[in-house]
Structures are given as structure tokens and as C-alpha cells.
Simulated assay, not measured.
Amino acid sequence: MRTPPASEHATGAAAALVYLAVLAAFINMYLPQAILPVLGREFGVSPSTASLSVSVMILGIAVSSLVMGPLSDRIGRKPLLVGCALALTGPSLVCALAPSWPVLLAGRLVQGLFIPGLTAVGVAYIAEEFPEGRVGRLLGGYVAATVLGGLLSRVLAGLIAEAAGWRWAFVLGAANALAVGGALTRLRPSRRFVPSSALRGAYAGMLAHLRSPRLVGGFAVGFSLFFAFMAVFTYLPFYVEAPPFGFSPGEVGLVYLVYAAGVVSSPLAGALAARVGPRGVMVLGLGTALVAGGFTLLPSAPLLIAALLALCFGNFAAQSTATAFVATQAEGERAGASALYLFAYYVGGSLGAFVPGLAFARSGWGGVLLLSTAALLAGMSAAALLCRADEPVSGTQPSP
């Protein structure tokens, strides 16, 4: 039986609620990143140790992605979207009240376990609930929501830490998650959802995606681009806090306004992929980020901001294209495919948040950029060699 089309209003409302869920996830995800030097001084830890407040959460996301995707294929999308948003409130408050570094890290890890219930499940909801010809653009909006959430998280954390103390930044994250969880109760259940017969079947379907070279290529692109991105933006606060820049915590937070470039590039990437194919957009986006990274070595604040804008523009273009590529190339068990993509993506991010810290301690910002460049080259190779499609990804084709 054919599912009747939803009204434009209902479609827009459902997409907006998913975007709110993603916004809440990313606001909570990156709260510490702009204030890592502040946390380092508060708890007396080194830059690489301070970065664990980002990497342990991302590691929790990576592990949980393997559970949330198949679980939502079994029980549905809405229950997890609502439940995970509300559950995120608890560990956010633990972080706000943390009396020691291990307690804060534990709270961050638990936060990470709930994030895929908003991100991976949100992608699956969009991919199955909306007409195929609109999925690419809607996923472009999804990535734009991740950009906005990441931007607000870092900017507000820096400003709040400078004005009232870093603990209030985590209080903001808890309040946001609670409000979004309440709003998600109004989300309509997915009309096209067909539950897996059992979790075992859902996992078998998820692992079957590893037999597709195109999907494996998409997973590799996600790993590489997020490793490189986290390398740059995790250690950026330490770089710009020191001479010749000498930025304050609030000014460091404002630097993350460069994320706004992703709000522009993500939707544009979907339209461009419909014309030239997703592989070309991924290679172009990663290449743009690679070149832009080199310009951050110049000791000029305006040039630094311009380079970071270009880096964000290229990275988010590649990210939105890779997200749509995986979601639309998957045949069945789409939440499982999104979960594998996010697992690779967040493992890359977790390593990118920590490993470059060792290079930063030995070689400074140049060491961070060297590892970032290597990751971007690997991602470009994966896109060029594996992400081949006979035709543009259906989710990125223009709406009729």
C-alpha cells in the first residue's frame, strides 16, 4: 500500500524537530572545546589531557552508534529521539557539578552514549520519512543544524566561561536537552518505518553494508575528515591563546563563528552533487580544507579567520555529501548504515581530538597541521577510488 504524501507544513514541522534534536546533540557535544585552556587550568592538566573531555565523549558516541542504529531499526525512531534527548540532561548536570577531572570525564562519556540516539536516528528518520528526491537537501539541512549546534556550543561556552564560569556552560547544555526532549514528543512517527524482525537481523543488515566498496569509501571519508577537523579545532584554542594572537576565552569562542561557513556550504553541496556527482564534491571539499589549513600558519588574525572560514566551507561540504551518499546508497537497514558511518566518523574524531595533542606538545601547531593534512589526503583517496556511483546519488537530485 502506498504511503500518502504528507502536507508541506507537516513535512517542514517534522524536519524542524529533527534539526532541533541534532542541534541539542551538537550543543552538548562541543561545549568544552573552546574552553579547554580554562579546564586545563581549573583541574591542573596538560593540553592533551584536557582534550580528553572531547575525545572520551566522541568515543562514547562511536560505540553507542553501533547500538542505537540497529535498536532504532527494531523499535522505531521517535522513542529513541525523545528518550535520548531527555536522558542527556542527567550527565550534562554531572559535568556542571563535577568536583574532579575523572568525574567530568565520566559525565562526558555518558553524554556520548546518548548522542547517536539523536544523530544516527535523525538521519534514518529523514532518509525514510521524506520523498527520495528531497533527502539530499534535507540532509544538507541536517548538516547545517550540526554546524549551527557546534557554532553555538563553542561561542556560548567561551562567552559564558568568561562572564560567569565554565560550569554554567554545562547547565545551558542540560536545559537545552530537556527543552528539546519535550518538543520531540510532538514528532510524528515515521510512516514508512518497517521494524526489523529482531536485533540480530538488524545487526546482520548493518554488517552487510561492509561488503559495499562504495559505502566503505563513505565511511573512510567520514573518518578522515573528522580526524582532520578535530585536530585543528581542538588545539586551536591553545594556538590562538598564545602569542602572536593572545586571544581571551571569550575571543576564542567567537573564533568559532567561522562555522557559519558550513551553514552555507552544506546545502550548496547537495545541489552541486546532483550536477557533478558526490565523489567530485567530496574530493573538492577535502582539498579546499587541506589548502586552507596551511594558511593558518601565517601570524595574522585576519588571515587566520579567512583560512578557518575556507576550511569549514570545504569540510562541511564534504561532510554533508558523504552523509547523503551513505544514507542513499544503503539498501535496507538505513539506520545501520548511518550507524557505521557515524562509528567511523566519531572514531576518527576521537583520535583527532587526542593524538595531535602529542604532536602539538613536540612540534606546536605545525605538528597538528601535518597530521590533519595526512588525514585529508587519505580521505580524498578514499573518495576518488571507492565512492564511485553510476549516477548522482538519488537523495541529492533536484526535487521534481
Rank of each mutant, 00 (worst) to 15 (best):
A13I: 00
V22R: 09
A24G: 14
A25W: 07
F26Y: 11
I27H: 05
N28W: 07
Y30M: 14
L31F: 03
V38C: 07
E42W: 03
A50T: 02
S51A: 13
L52K: 04
V54M: 14
M68G: 05
P70D: 10
P79V: 07
C84V: 08
T89I: 07
A96L: 02
L97I: 06
P99K: 10
P99G: 05
S100G: 14
G107I: 10
R108N: 03
L109I: 14
V110E: 09
P116Y: 15
G117R: 04
G117W: 03
G122C: 01
I126V: 02
E128Q: 11
R137Y: 06
G141M: 09
Y142L: 06
V143H: 03
A144W: 04
A144V: 04
A145N: 11
V147S: 15
L151A: 08
A157K: 03
G158A: 04
L159H: 05
I160W: 00
N176L: 14
G181Q: 11
G182A: 03
T185K: 05
T185N: 04
R186F: 04
A204W: 08
R211H: 11
P213L: 09
G217E: 09
F219E: 13
G222I: 15
P237Q: 06
A242S: 15
A242D: 12
P244T: 06
F247R: 09
L254Q: 07
G262F: 01
S266I: 04
A274F: 05
R275Y: 01
G277D: 14
G277L: 14
G280R: 15
V281P: 12
V291C: 12
G293H: 05
F295M: 09
L303D: 04
I305T: 05
L311W: 01
A330D: 08
L342N: 15
G348R: 07
G348T: 03
G348S: 09
F354D: 02
G357Y: 08
A361V: 05
G366Q: 12
L371V: 08
T373L: 02
T373H: 05
A375V: 07
G379R: 14
M380H: 00
G395H: 02
